[in-house]
């Protein structure tokens, strides 16, 4: 059974997640100028779970991810159609402030991008601009502990963050994201720039983080998706090859072992392309 394209009701394989989803993308189309990047995308992101977006490069995984915290607003000429909701509230409602959205839906980028400031300042800054009035030292420690970085940096909190290794920098970026207490964390290929050991650390960390946060992760690494995620959405270019869409969405185990869509099966078994 395949996902119905060009539809206005939810494909049957996502409906059972409707009640536990924090984020929902329904019938979403994204355009960059006149070029369509996403077509008729449906995706439900269940609470306290890790959902992975997989698929070949250029099929719009990052574009879809960035719809959820309105980072696409920053690209000139980008246009998002359809409904993207967070706990029932349309995020693209004219009344909604993208700045507030980004505070509650945090993001970790592909390449570690710490601010060229101290480790402490990296974590504290987001909380400070969001008006945190509690004990900042405590908040920094808590965030760094949750990001499994505390023990490595506790003696050099005021060193420049750029002196850390790539894997440490990425965990610092995660600490920075969780310091503002988001509910959802979007991760855009967070381990793709890291070595295997650092990658494993990030994956362990994600499993711990899902107790408190809902995670949506883009990855080009299918083993990674299989290892860490609870749900997997398979994205592909549409048959005319012009725009990306979600062709299959379900529990990770089901998607990897009993894919419903032949294209998913081809991709997973390496027969794709």
């Amino acid at each position: 059974m395949t996902v119905h394209l060009m539809t206005t009701t939810a494909p049957t394989n996502v409906t059972d997640l409707e009640n536990v989803a924090v984020l929902k993308a329904q019938n979403v189309n994204v355009y960059y100028g006149t070029k369509q990047a996403l077509r008729d995308v449906w995706l439900y992101v269940p609470e306290h779970k890790i959902t992975a977006l997989i698929g070949p490069s250029g099929c719009g995984k990052s574009t879809l991810l960035r719809c959820f915290n309105r980072m696409n607003d920053l690209i000139p000429n980008a246009r998002v159609e359809g409904e993207i909701t967070y706990r029932g509230q349309n995020l693209y409602d004219p009344d909604i402030d993208p700045v507030e959205v980004r505070r509650r839906i945090g993001m970790v980028f592909q390449k570690p991008n710490p601010f060229p400031k101290s480790i402490y300042e990296n974590v504290a800054w987001g909380a400070r601009i969001n008006g945190y009035r509690g004990d900042m030292d405590e908040l920094v420690e808590r965030a760094l502990r949750r990001a499994a970085l505390w023990d490595e940096v506790k003696d050099r909190l005021h060193d420049n963050a750029l002196a850390l290794s790539g894997g440490q920098q990425q965990r610092l970026c995660i600490a920075r994201a969780i310091a503002v207490e988001p509910e959802v964390i979007l991760m855009d290929e967070p381990a793709s720039a890291l070595d295997p050991i650092a990658t494993l650390k990030i994956e362990d960390l994600m499993r711990e983080l899902k107790e408190r946060y809902t995670i949506l992760i883009v990855t080009h690494n299918m083993q990674q998706a299989a290892r860490v995620s609870d749900y997997t959405a398979m994205m592909m270019l549409t048959e005319d090859g012009r725009a990306g869409t979600v062709v299959e969405f379900g529990e990770t185990e089901q998607v990897f072992t009993r894919p419903r869509d032949p294209r998913t099966e081809d991709y997973i078994t390496g027969r794709f392309g």
Binding site: V99, E100, R102, R103, G106, F115, W125, R176, A177
Partner: peptide, 8 residues
């Protein structure tokens, strides 16, 4: 991007 993604 890092700053904006933190809700700045």
């Amino acid at each position: 991007l890092a700053a904006l993604a933190l809700g700045a």
